[in-house]
Amino acid sequence: MSGRLQDRVAIVTGAAHGIGAAAARRFVAEGARVVLADISERGLAETAGELGDAVRAIRCDVADPQDLPATVDHAVTAFGGLDILFNNAATGAGGGLTEMDPADWDRVFAVNVGGVLHGIRAAVPAMRERGGGAILSTSSVAGRCASPGIAAYAASKAAVESLTRSAALELRENRIRVNAIAPGLVRTRAAEASARFLLDALGSDPDGYVAARQGRWGEPDEIAAVAAHLVSDEASFTTGQCYVLDNGATLRA
């Protein structure tokens, strides 16, 4: 690894599994110290045990406006500051618009959009103390392409992109860059379970669907590599952008 995140302090939400865990590993390999945040204490313990002294773990529900400020405080106390925030935690809910429970819709937005907002608000004061920083959020190609049965998730991810652009302009004078990534179908437990749930109803095979849509599953490490670039100084002139990572799936009408 290049050491391009040497001596940086990062928070990764949704760090217990999947893209978040892969990003935490990559950030540590690049020299960062990382606070792992997730609601899954068991998953946190597994990831933290793998990464050793370079990380700290804290239970965090990003939908709770109090949890992310506490997570930032944890990073400052443990490692002396905050340079990077990766808003990766997310949730979904299936069901058509006319059938789904309104409480499910509210929870998806509380986590996927509220969590990004709470993260930005909590991180900015600490980043100002360091003279700047980088914020990255996970959107999804679902926010750009319509799919039946996942309207809450898709709408929330479109909101993440819009919030990213607004935050980038507001925080530019503070030398805080704000970007997003929009992965396609990535081989995580959550994505595989969601694909199976949706496609069982259609009588389709998840692997066949993925192959037809985007050629193959993406891998968490592939997403983590782009995340590491975007929060590093290599992307110092990049802000307000959303990088689509889907092997070309969204290039077709």
Rank of each mutant, 00 (worst) to 15 (best):
V124I: 09
T47K: 03
D61N: 15
I176D: 08
V9Q: 07
A48C: 13
A191C: 13
P125Q: 01
W217F: 15
A201G: 14
S162Y: 07
A235S: 13
G81Q: 10
I135M: 02
V62N: 03
N87G: 03
R25H: 13
R128K: 14
G43T: 04
G114C: 10
S236L: 05
V34Q: 02
S204E: 15
G203S: 12
P148M: 06
G215E: 09
M100L: 14
T98Y: 06
L202D: 14
A227G: 11
Q6N: 12
E30H: 11
A10C: 12
P206K: 09
R196K: 15
L199D: 05
L199T: 04
P206M: 12
G143Y: 06
D233M: 04
E50V: 11
A103Q: 13
L251T: 14
R189H: 07
I11G: 05
K157M: 10
A57Q: 13
D101Y: 10
E129H: 03
A249P: 08
I181M: 14
V35W: 01
A154P: 09
S156T: 07
N112W: 01
V9N: 09
A37Y: 05
E192S: 13
R144D: 04
L68R: 06
G14E: 05
Q241N: 10
A228I: 03
A249M: 15
A15K: 12
A227Q: 06
N247D: 14
V28P: 10
G43P: 04
M127T: 06
